[in-house]
Design a protein around this nucleic acid. Structure first.
Length: 263
DNA sequence: AGTACCACCTGACGGC
DNA sequence: TGCCGTCAGGTGGTAC
């Protein structure tokens, strides 16, 4: 689930709930989500600290502590945040819980434990160490083309490679290529400058619209493929049949009529 | 370098 | 009702 739009929604959620409130206690319910930091160190760093400012790069969410360190959250396939006061609102797979001085808690929930939580001294260095490409929402066209031109394979695989561009996952990459009317298996080299420009423009439009819709599939524009991710469903643009193929082991949905040949 | 495949996890769903 | 295979939107390693 959590790709760039989802994580941006989580960032705004965190910023509007848990910032500027002192953390009284921190509970680690699953050590499996911790990466490069012990529960003990995370606890001692967070307790008594205040989250002061947030940022997002690709699918990573950063929250800076008043002490200067960065709490870094990655959500995997099933992660999300929940801010609540009463235990009846408690989510089902609480992995980390920050208890705040106002009586509320901010919880990192992750059913499948594929997400990871880090503590990093520096945001920029963290991004470099993870070898992440530029954020898909803020990259400019020139940088975008220079990166994409390094790709030799299918456009979908290239767009999803976090080292090329950070933030696009399976769902939104399919959406972008659908809006751009480009076949997911088309090679990057076959697109030409016009094709790349279309992909870039649609990437921006899709990401912005998805964020506006709170990354909620039920609120996406009618023109989106997203609610039709089912084989034999009909294309929202031409009414044609939605097809499903496997690309690098990922379920890939597209409209053969709109998106043409693999080129 | 690219891609296919497996693993990591849990849970939902359909078939039998 | 229960068991089993399959699949799910992320990432990372291996082998070809």
């Amino acid at each position: 689930m959590p790709e760039l739009p989802d994580v941006e929604v989580y960032r705004r959620y965190l910023a509007s709930t848990a910032l500027h409130r002192r953390i009284t206690t921190m509970e680690v319910h699953s050590h499996r989500v911790l990466d490069g930091v012990s529960g003990k160190r995370l606890k001692s760093t967070l307790e008594g600290a205040v989250l002061e400012e947030t940022a997002r790069h690709g699918k990573y969410l950063f929250a800076r502590l008043d002490k200067g360190q960065e709490l870094v959250l990655h959500f995997g396939m099933t992660g999300f945040l929940k801010y609540y006061k009463n235990d009846e609102s408690k989510p089902g797979h609480e992995r980390l819980r920050l208890r705040l001085e106002n009586g509320y808690s901010l919880v990192y929930d992750n059913q499948r434990l594929l997400g990871r939580v880090f503590l990093a001294p520096d945001r920029k260095r963290f991004i470099e160490e993870q070898e992440l490409g530029p954020d898909a929402l803020t990259v400019d066209f020139e940088r975008f083309t220079s990166i994409l031109e390094r790709g030799r394979g299918a456009i979908k695989s290239t767009l999803m490679n976090q080292k090329m561009l950070a933030g696009l996952g399976n769902i939104y990459t399919d959406e972008i290529l659908f809006q751009a009317r480009i076949h997911p298996k088309a090679s990057v080299g076959s697109l030409g400058e016009d094709g790349l420009r279309t992909v870039y423009e649609q990437m921006r439009v899709v990401l912005e619209q998805a964020i506006d819709a709170q990354a909620d599939p039920g609120r996406m524009p009618e023109s989106f493929l997203l609610p039709h991710r089912e084989e034999e469903d009909s294309c929202p643009r031409c009414g044609g049949r939605v097809r499903k193929i496997s690309l690098s082991g990922r379920a890939t949905y597209f409209c053969a009529a709109c998106q043409g040949e693999a080129g």
